[in-house]
Nucleic acid binder design. Structure first.
Length: 767
DNA sequence: CTAGGGTTAG
């Protein structure tokens, strides 16, 4: 100790630390444990990088107990649990087998706190008691907390009960442990029993009630507190914020300021995230102003909350600026917030570039990116990324991951993939919450299996919410099960759930697909304040059953402005019933509202073609040309052996393309032998004189069906998804295919299923 | 060295 102490406490930055380190090395102080211990403590205070301290420690020739201890503390502070444990094992192996003096009892709380699972807590517990540290208050408290962390509430309680004397910290630990594992009743009992309560005990009760959604009781305890700390205020604030009660949160925050409680960074984070939820740029602005005027010290959490708030208020540039300014201080959450910000607005390229660049990923990073793909229609990429996450990187998915993946499977109509996803859920023992089950209902509905959808629906009895019902009703609608949709709505009312906007859209669509006019009108009249979407459904219903004039009158009498969906329904109905004038009316409205949508031009042109108005057909074609509207290429896909095979009309890209065409040609030959006439590309031709129906060349769904016929076994149901509507002539062709091959074929287009069997189809309204 | 509050994803 003859060396003079270096100015450790004076170090203020990481740069200073490195200079000190160099000085230590120069003066060959590495074996002077007193210096090293002081230095590492300073590293902890300044949050030095983990690898730096790790390296430093391993370069030491002869670290003593204080050095071990300060390094342990550093690792613990950096949440480097594995480092804590390996250091502890190193310490145990180095030291003499004799029991250690009491002086180092305090390393045990750190070690127990780093235990990764319940069994390691148990062995630490045994070890610690064997060494005689069982009487140390801190060690006992750590043991109780260790068990509580992993849900072994009963074991924790036993340790608690066996304590010779209990401090208020032990009571508090037990109380918050009970709350954490959903055992509020026991928490309350302990709170009532405990001899001395402090502000922590009261705050734990506020948090407990707030987290279980009982904001009134939480507020009751908050009001009843003998004294409040800033943490108590924050607990109440975050209670409101987490329950989405933004107004209450803001009001409480103002009260807090009024009473003169100094807001800390946690307060700001809570308030900022509340305002993010509101998404109001003006509120956000005034909050930032008050941050500025108070010259609030913005830590990483505050900045991340700000990034999220700006992003949700639509100010991505500002969000990005803050993110860039954070530089290396940005943590994984800041990255995630930025990634999901880009994903939300559909800028997946930017989201992905950040995702690829980020220094560390956690499960939320993967979830954000996967959800970004899934929600922007890139189901396939979502699943690819999920495979990369779980198979390549061995990352464990959680429920949120699975909800996105389930949804992607549904959009793809990938039934087999969906079953694999169920396996993943089972293997990883992921507990699905209600939103997970709802996603499953949607997935199975979209894969065409209402049996599975209903099975899941019935499995979740008791906790079903409006979305569970809506998912199943929407499924029924897509399958044309009108009555069942209506019945389900009655059932949800019986269960005390009020149908919402989406419920009514589903039921009306179901009536429409099933041609249930009166029932639909009855439902429509029962809607308290119908939205424009409900009107669109009604126009669709009236139109499909042929009451086009009535549909037009409904549009004229609407209390709000009609949108593209309304006119789209009218155009579609005009197309079905070959109503030229209303078709023109609707189409021209649509040309204004969505000039880039090629489907509208095609529909109108087809209506003209049926009326043999060839000049107008040409005019629409020209119009598309001058406006630069490209006909959307529809694609279809079919799942086989867990892989999704995609086709577009006329493509020959598939490796088995030749065989597929051969299969289809053979079928066409058989059709011709039956007296049907096959004409290629005849949508616009005059077909009046044809006695028999017309089969047309290669549509994407026919290629997909051809592929499935080639690959799947006889008797298997063929499930095909098409991203555009299934058109009339192909409908005829598929009917024939189902008859000739005696296969059940399920084709899903945008929002409904066409179930082909024995030459018949469940959708009657096409031609 | 123990107990209470905070950011991101569906």
């Amino acid at each position: 100790m003859s060396n003079p102490p270096l100015p450790y406490k004076a170090a203020k930055t990481h740069k200073h630390l490195r200079e000190l380190h160099a000085q230590i090395a120069r003066q060959t102080l590495l074996h002077h444990n007193h210096h090293i211990s002081l230095f590492i403590r300073r590293c902890a205070a300044l949050r030095a990088p983990l690898p730096y301290v790790r390296l430093l420690f391993h370069s030491l020739p002869n670290p003593n107990l204080p050095v071990f201890t300060s390094t342990l503390k550093f690792f613990s502070l950096s949440s480097a649990h594995r480092d804590v444990l390996s250091l502890f094992h190193l310490l145990r192996s180095r030291r003499a087998p004799a029991p250690a003096p009491d002086a180092d009892a305090f390393i045990y709380p750190i070690v127990i706190n780093a235990c990764p699972n319940a069994s390691s807590v148990a062995s630490a517990h045994a070890h610690v008691f064997k060494l005689g540290y069982g009487c140390d208050a801190f060690v006992r408290n750590a043991v109780v907390n260790g068990y509580l962390r992993f849900g072994l509430v009963g074991v924790a309680r036993e340790v608690f009960d066996e304590m010779p004397e209990r401090g208020v910290a032990d009571w508090n630990a037990m109380i918050s442990g009970y709350w954490r594992w959903g055992r509020g009743r026991e928490a309350c009992e302990l709170f009532d029993e405990m001899p001395v309560r402090n502000v922590v005990s009261w705050t734990a009760m506020v948090t407990g009630y707030a987290r279980s959604g009982d904001l009134e009781r939480a507020r009751g305890f908050f009001e009843g507190m003998p004294e409040r700390s800033v943490v108590s205020w924050n607990a109440m604030l975050s209670g409101y914020a987490q329950s989405g009660l933004v107004d209450e949160a803001i009001e409480l925050f103002l009260e807090m300021v009024d009473v003169g409680v100094e807001a800390d960074e946690t307060t700001w984070v809570t308030v900022i995230s509340s305002l993010a939820e509101r998404g109001d740029p003006r509120l956000a602005k005034s909050l930032v102003d008050s941050l500025d005027s108070r010259r609030v010290n913005c830590n990483c959490f505050v900045k991340t909350a700000l990034i999220d708030m700006y992003a949700k208020c639509g100010e991505l540039t500002t969000a990005r600026r803050i993110f860039d300014e954070m530089g290396t201080h940005a943590n994984v959450v800041s990255w995630n917030a930025m990634i999901s910000a880009y994903a939300r607005v559909g800028d997946l390229a930017l989201a992905r570039s950040l995702f690829d660049k980020m220094p560390r990923k956690n499960v939320v990073s993967w979830n954000s990116m996967i959800a970004g793909y899934a929600q922007n229609g890139h189901s396939f990429l979502a699943i690819e990324l999920f495979k990369e996450m779980t198979l390549t990187n061995n990352f464990k998915p959680d429920e949120v991951t699975m909800v996105s993946v389930i949804s992607a499977c549904g959009h793809l109509g990938a039934y087999e993939l969906g079953r694999w996803v169920m396996d993943v859920i089972a293997k990883n023992r992921i507990n699905l919450s209600i939103s997970g089950y709802n996603a499953l209902i949607s997935m199975y509905s979209r894969c065409g299996s209402m049996e599975d959808a209903e099975r899941i629906f019935h499995e979740i009895t008791g906790v079903r919410d409006v979305i569970s019902y809506n998912s199943l009703i929407t499924g029924f609608a897509a399958h044309g099960y009108g009555t069942r949709a209506i019945e389900l709505m009655s059932k949800m009312k019986e269960e005390g759930l009020e149908p919402d906007r989406v419920t009514f859209i589903g039921v009306l669509a179901a009536c429409s697909h099933a041609g249930l006019l009166e029932e639909g009108q009855h439902v429509f009249r029962s809607i308290k304040s119908p939205t424009v979407d409900h009107y669109a459904c009604m126009v669709d219903l009236l139109g499909r059953v042929g009451k086009l004039e009535e549909a037009k009158r409904l549009i004229d009498g609407m209390p709000m402005k009609a949108h593209a969906g309304v006119y789209g329904a009218l155009l579609n109905a005009s197309h079905i019933h070959k109503q030229l004038e209303l078709g023109e009316f609707a189409a021209y409205k649509l040309f204004d509202l969505e000039p880039e949508n090629s489907g509208n031009y095609v529909l109108l042109s087809n209506i003209y073609a049926f009326a043999k108005r060839w000049k107008e057909v040409d005019r629409i074609r020209e119009m598309m040309g001058t406006r630069g509207v490209k006909k959307t290429t529809g694609c279809s896909w079919v799942e086989f052996d867990g892989k999704v095979h995609r086709f577009i009309a006329g493509d020959q890209l598939h490796e088995r393309s030749k065989e597929i065409y051969h299969v289809l040609e053979e079928l066409e030959k058989r059709m011709r032998a039956l007296g049907y006439i096959a004409i290629k590309d005849c949508v616009l031709r005059d077909v009046e004189d044809e006695e028999k129906e017309v089969i047309v060349g290669t549509h994407s769904e026919k290629l997909a069906i051809g592929f499935a016929l080639l690959m799947s076994e006889e008797g298997a149901v063929i499930r095909v998804v098409k991203n555009l509507r299934v058109c009339g002539d192909c409908h005829v062709a598929i009917k024939m295919i189902s008859k000739l091959t005696r296969r059940e074929i399920l084709v899903r287009d945008n929002n409904r299923f066409h179930h082909f069997k024995d030459g018949e189809c469940s959708c009657q309204d096409y031609w």
